[in-house]
Amino acid sequence: MDIDGADFLARGITAIGPEGIVFEGIDLRVRPGELGVLTGPGGSGRTAMLLALSGRLRLASGHLEVSGHVLPSQARAVRQLVLPARLRPGFELDEQHTVRGVITERRLISGISRPAVDELLARVGVDPYPSDLIWELHPAERLLLSIALAAAAAPAAIVVDDVEAGLTAAGRTRVWTALRLLVQTGMTVIASSTEAPSGDAVVIRLPRPEYDEPTDVLAWGGGGW
């Protein structure tokens, strides 16, 4: 698997939701094949930032481009380059479906082959029973399955929200290890977490804004995977 990763460049980007500022004046640069980590307390806009970087949230100001595609005018192209592995709400596995069901659904939506799925499941180190319901999986396995299904489509980048949510220290280590294996393919990975992992990563720290992050951010033009 050899991927041409996405290149992210942002200068002074700001997003505003119904309750006020979500994040403000953020600069970042994540180059192809790097692991970028958005950190910050609850309400600092981590999820909204991932939506913006994947072409699914309209910014109020600033400059944002992904592999030369300038947002918002080229948001459709960015959405083809950058796939959500997990973004809450809206981009999560249906907990009432079986593993077999979500794999079949994703293959139909994305046109990915079963060998591609199997390769990514092995790469990230997860092998759930096909008949298991998603809610029955260990939280780390559930997230790794989401990551594998997004990466199987061989996008230039994936985004992953709340890496640490519900995980033990061992589970977090397992997920960060899997994400580092993905960047070795050339794929760019941008994830959010309350704390940055140890090791080599591009860390973007988001301060808490004056207002709490709204639950209904102003996304546009980007339903589905």
Results as ranks from 00 to 15, higher is better:
Ala169Thr: 09
Thr177Tyr: 00
Gly111Met: 15
Glu119Val: 14
Leu51Ser: 14
Trp220Leu: 12
Met187Cys: 02
Ile109Tyr: 13
Glu210Val: 11
His138Pro: 04
Pro72Gln: 06
Gly43Val: 10
Arg88Pro: 06
Val30Trp: 12
Val202Ala: 01
Ala178Val: 03
Leu218Ala: 03
Ile112Tyr: 12
Pro209Trp: 04
Val202Cys: 01
Arg11Val: 08
Ala154Glu: 15
Gln96Pro: 13
Gly166Ser: 00
Ser192Phe: 03
Ile112Asn: 10
Gly224Thr: 02
Arg174Ser: 03
Leu144Thr: 05
Thr173Asp: 14
Gly186Ala: 04
Val30Gln: 10
Val82His: 08
Leu143Arg: 02
Glu136Trp: 07
Leu121Tyr: 09
Thr177Val: 01
Leu179Pro: 07
Thr215Arg: 12
Pro115Trp: 12
Ile3Cys: 01
Val124Ser: 04
Val99Gly: 11
Asp4Cys: 07
Leu50Asp: 13
Ile3Gln: 02
Glu95Thr: 14
Glu164Pro: 01
Ile109Thr: 14
Gly45Leu: 12
Arg172Asp: 00
Asp132Thr: 12
Ala156Val: 06
Ala150Lys: 06
Arg29Gly: 09
Pro89Lys: 05
Leu93Tyr: 04
His97Met: 15
Val160Arg: 03
Glu65Gly: 07
Trp225Lys: 02
Ala48Cys: 10
Arg208Val: 02
Ala140Thr: 07
Gly5Ile: 02
Gly111Asp: 13
Val163Met: 03
Arg11Gln: 10
Arg114Trp: 14
Arg172Gln: 01
Glu210Tyr: 02
Glu195Thr: 08
Ala152Asp: 11
Ala178Leu: 03
Ser193Ile: 03
Arg11Thr: 09
Leu64Met: 13
Gly62Asn: 07
Ala140Glu: 11
Gly5Trp: 08
Arg174Tyr: 02
Ala150Val: 10
Gly5Lys: 07
Leu53Glu: 12
Gly5Cys: 05
Glu195Ser: 04
Ser193Lys: 01
Leu121Ile: 06
Glu164Val: 00
Leu143Ala: 01
Ala165Gln: 01
Ala60Asn: 14
Val124Arg: 02
Ser131Cys: 11
Thr47Ile: 13
Phe91Ser: 12
